[in-house]
């Protein structure tokens, strides 16, 4: 087919090399589209693997019973202790990291000068870049070495992972609070702390919540900070963070390293529980984020 037929001004001859350029353009479009498809396909593949392999081993009994090792060394119980332990670890970690992170955001947006604020942002980014295995080793070195593993140590390690996520998102949201609200407060004769507590934080609460949910979603699946700090837990249900707490990521890690197919089936089932939790939290954070940013920008 001659190029002229495709040309909107058909009677003009197309410039030389147009055919080659058009094919290049098509190849380019196809390549970029294929890349995006590939990324989505990999996500679908991983989630489908977890669903297909995890669903058969998932049962009410699996969720509500503690691990129980039969005479043949096979776990015939469930992961109740790991679910409870994970919940406790995440609650403790968030209890430490969320208030601290929001305070960091308040300081850098409300009190600090622009140069200090930039340094704090940089420090948060560097902390965010510290490999979580190093965080685990650090907490091991400070809290566990010479003593014993504990839920507290695990929670502190997770809190260190959460802190920069909460801090950065708090900072981003607080800068979005319209300046005129603050000026209105000043015009009413309010002091700075009153403006922050009664105007700025309530206005930004949606965005602050987003940061917290995002941080929880991130640490719910973190294994590296926990393997040195709270990985040798007994099979029973424990709610005492003074001792080692069982948790989902380490449970999946241990089961995945085992050669037994039964363990693998249980690893998939535990992974299904974890991935559902993490993906749902991530989607919630996503929706909250868009909504709160839209509300602030209005």
């Amino acid at each position: 087919m001659p190029d002229t037929e495709l040309h909107p001004l058909g009677r003009f001859a197309p410039p030389p090399g147009m055919r080659r350029r058009r094919w290049l353009d098509r190849g380019f479009t196809a390549g970029a589209t294929a890349a995006a498809l590939l990324a989505v396909a990999v996500l679908a593949l991983v989630i489908a693997s977890v669903l297909i392999n995890g669903a058969p081993a998932l049962s009410w009994r699996f969720l509500t019973h503690n691990p129980h090792t039969s005479a043949f060394g096979v776990n015939t119980g469930g992961i109740a202790n790991a679910i409870v332990g994970s919940a406790i670890l995440i609650a403790l970690a968030s209890g430490m990291a969320v208030p601290a992170g929001i305070l960091v955001g308040v300081f850098s947006t409300q009190f600090a000068g622009s140069r200090t604020a930039r340094s704090i942002r940089f420090a948060l980014d560097v902390l965010n870049g510290v490999p979580t295995i190093v965080t685990g080793v650090f907490v091991f070195g400070v809290l566990v070495i010479g003593g014993r593993q504990s839920g507290w140590a695990g929670a502190v390690a997770l809190a260190i992972v959460e802190l920069p996520i909460v801090g950065r998102s708090a900072e981003e949201v607080l800068t979005l609070v319209p300046e005129r609200l603050r000026e209105a407060g000043l015009a009413l004769g309010l002091r700075r702390w009153r403006i922050i507590v009664s105007i700025i934080l309530p206005t930004a609460v949606g965005g602050l919540l987003t940061g917290a949910v995002l941080a929880v979603a991130r640490v719910a699946g973190e294994t590296a900070p926990l393997i040195f700090t709270t990985s040798f837990a007994g099979p029973g249900l424990s709610v005492n963070p003074g001792g080692s707490l069982a948790n989902l990521p380490v449970t999946i890690f241990d089961l995945s390293e085992s050669p037994s197919p039964t363990s693998h089936a249980q690893a998939w089932a535990a992974a299904l529980v974890l991935i559902l939790g993490v993906l749902i939290l991530s989607l919630i954070a996503r929706v909250l984020h868009d909504r709160s940013v839209a509300a602030l920008r209005r």
């Binding site: 990324a39 996500l43 693997s49 979603a217 699946g221 990521p249 890690f253 992974a271 993490v278």
Partner: peptide, 18 residues
């Protein structure tokens, strides 16, 4: 694409093994 980053590494590792 962003959700790809949300998959816990231990689960990606499990997928890598099996």
């Amino acid at each position: 694409v962003e959700l790809l980053a949300a998959i816990p590494s231990v689960i990606l590792g499990l997928w890598g093994i099996l």
